[in-house]
Nucleic acid binder design. Structure first.
Lengths: 219, 219
DNA sequence: ATTTAACCTGACCAAGTGGTCAAATATTTT
DNA sequence: AAAATATTTGACCACTTGGTCAGGTTAAAT
C-alpha cells in the first residue's frame, strides 16, 4: 500500500484539479483506515495519518476538515464493501450455496481488507457512537431479510434449527472476522508465520465446512 | 461497579495501610479495565481512569506509576481468568462434555466480564505489542495441548475432522467473545434491548448446539 | 495575459497529555 | 509521644493534540 501511495504521488506534475482531489482523498482514506485500525478513533492522531499518507498534516485537514469527519468516511466505505459481500445470501436459494459463498466472501474480505474490519471492530467495541444510525437502519434491515431466509430454510427442513437465526449469523460474522481482527494473534500462534495464500484458502474451506455442518449440511 | 467503588470508599476512616493499598488497587484496576475496554491503551487517559475510580489522577500514578504499567496489570489479570475458564478442555475426556463446559464457561465470561474481553481484543487488534510474550509462551502452550486433545478425538472418531484443529478452536473463541466485544452491536440489532439473564442462557445453549454440531456431535 | 478558484503548507495556538514533586495528612513503629 | 513510614493531592511542566490561517503555488476560466 505504501508503494501505491508513492506511485501515485510520483507521477505528479501535470494533473487536473479533479484528479488531484480524487487521488489525495484515496491516499488519505487508505492511510486513515490503516491508522484507525491500529489505534481507534481516539488513539489515532492526524499526524500519524499524515505521515502514513506522506502528506503534511494541514493537507489532511484541507480535504477532510476534521478527524471525526475522516473517520466517518472510512466507516462508510467499509460498510459499503461489506454489504456488497453480503449479497450471496439473497441471490442463492439453496442454503448450501448461499452459506458457502457468503462465508467465502467474508473470509476473502478478512484477507484483503483486514484494516477495514479492525476499524469496524474498534468502533463497535467502543460503543458504536458514530455508527448507531448505520447499524439500526441499514444493517438491521439486511439482518432481518437474512434471518427470514434462514428461517425459511429451517421450515423447509433444509437445515437444522438453531433456535434463533441470529445466533447462526453472529457465528458466521465472528468466525470470519476473527481472521482479520485477530490476525496478529493467529500469526503468533502459528509460530510467527503468516498464512500463505494457499494455506488461507485451505482455512477458508475448513471454516465453510464447520459452518455448514453446524446446521447439519454435509459439505 | 460504580456503586462498588462508592461503597468501598465510604467505609473509610480507620483502615490498615495494607487494606488501603489492596482496596485502591482493585478500584483502580476495575476502573482501568472499563476505560481501556472503551478506548484502548493509546486512546485512554489517566484522567478518565481517575474519574471513573473517583480518585485524583496523582493517586493512580502513586499506585501504578505509569499508564503502561497499569495496562499490563489489567491484561495479566484478564489472562489469568481466561486460563481458569479454559480448564474444562483438559478435565473432561468426552468431547461432548469438554466442549459443552468450555463454550459455556467462555460465554459466561463474556457475560460477566465483557470489559476484560474488550481490552484483550483491543490489544490484539493493535498488534499485541504488550502481549506478545504471554501469547507466544503461555497461550501457545495451552493451545498446543488443546489441539492434541481435539486431534485425539478425531482419531477415535468421536468427532468429525475439520482439517486443522486450530480452525475449530478459533471458531469457539470468536463466537463466544463476540458476545462481549460486539455487545453494543447485538443490542442495537436486538431493537435496543439488552438480553435478560434467561435469554442469554438460551443463547448460550444455542451456541453450544451449533459448536457441537459443527463437529458432528448431536447435542 | 490576467483573473479566479482550487490546492498546498509552515507557523501557530489553545487545550489536553503523562508524569513529577513537595507539602500535608494518616497510620505504624519505636 | 515522637520518629518513621505510607498515603493523598494540588500545583506544575514539557510535550503532544486537533485545528486554524495567511500567504504561497498551480491549474482553469475569462
Amino acid at each position: 500500500m505504501g508503494d501505491q501511495i508513492v506511485a501515485v504521488k510520483a507521477k505528479r506534475g501535470q494533473r487536473s484539479k479533479e484528479s488531484i482531489r480524487e487521488d489525495n482523498e484515496l491516499i488519505i482514506l487508505a492511510a486513515a483506515e490503516k491508522v484507525f485500525a491500529k489505534h481507534g478513533l481516539k488513539g489515532s492522531t492526524t499526524k500519524q495519518i499524515a505521515d502514513v499518507a506522506k502528506l503534511p498534516k494541514s493537507n489532511i485537514h484541507y480535504y477532510f476538515h476534521t478527524k471525526l469527519n475522516l473517520y466517518r468516511r472510512v466507516l462508510e466505505s467499509i460498510f459499503v464493501e461489506w454489504m456488497k459481500a453480503a449479497e450471496p445470501f439473497n441471490t442463492y436459494d439453496e442454503p448450501k450455496e448461499a452459506i458457502r459463498f457468503y462465508v467465502g466472501a467474508k473470509m476473502d474480505l478478512s484477507r484483503t481488507r483486514p484494516f477495514g474490519s479492525k476499524v469496524w471492530a474498534n468502533e463497535i467495541i467502543s460503543g458504536a457512537p458514530e455508527m448507531e444510525e448505520i447499524l439500526s437502519s441499514r444493517l438491521k434491515k439486511w439482518v432481518d431479510t437474512c434471518v427470514s431466509s434462514i428461517n425459511t430454510w429451517v421450515e423447509l427442513k433444509k437445515i437444522n434449527s438453531m433456535g434463533d437465526a441470529h445466533t447462526f449469523l453472529y457465528m458466521i460474522w465472528a468466525t470470519t472476522q476473527h481472521y482479520a481482527d485477530f490476525d496478529y494473534q493467529l500469526i503468533i500462534l502459528n509460530n510467527g508465520k503468516k498464512l500463505t495464500d494457499s494455506e488461507f484458502e485451505e482455512k477458508k474451506q475448513q471454516v465453510i465446512g464447520l459452518v455448514l455442518r453446524s446446521v447439519g449440511i454435509e459439505p
